[in-house]
């Protein structure tokens, strides 16, 4: 389990990286909006929300693209160094697919920030 080769957990985490990023982004933007609006933190905070959400969206979407490129290039835990070619192809395509899904969902989550006024 231990040693030079990445373990089960690392491999699984990388396989799911795109959607883990989505979950982190989602939790962050929802939590931020929720706390800012529920606690009525003046006007400066709500005004900042769209920009913070947009920034978080760019960062998370960018990271999901990094994962996608890593998968395309055959890098990353579970792909690089996997001796079984069928398993390597599998890990690579699922990692890449998950990253694509993560990317789309992150962008969708970010869209409302441009269109909807916070706390209304």
């Amino acid at each position: 389990m231990r040693g030079a080769r990445p373990g089960f957990l690392t491999k699984m985490l990388f396989l799911n990286a795109g959607l883990v990023l989505w979950a982190a982004h989602f939790g962050f933007v929802y939590g931020l909006t929720g706390v800012v609006c529920a606690r009525g933190l003046g006007t400066a905070w709500p005004a900042a929300v769209p920009f913070v959400v947009a920034f978080a969206t760019v960062v998370a979407a960018g990271l999901s693209l990094v994962v996608l490129f890593a998968a395309v290039l055959g890098r990353g835990p579970g792909i690089a160094g996997e001796p079984d070619p069928a398993l390597r192809v599998f890990w690579r395509s699922v990692t890449g697919g998950v990253a694509v899904f993560g990317f789309v969902a992150i962008v969708w989550s970010g869209l409302p920030a441009v269109l909807i006024r916070p706390c209304a």
Partner: peptide, 10 residues
Amino acid sequence: LLVYGLALAR
């Protein structure tokens, strides 16, 4: 659809 729905909701 999402963009349309968000614009309507606004």
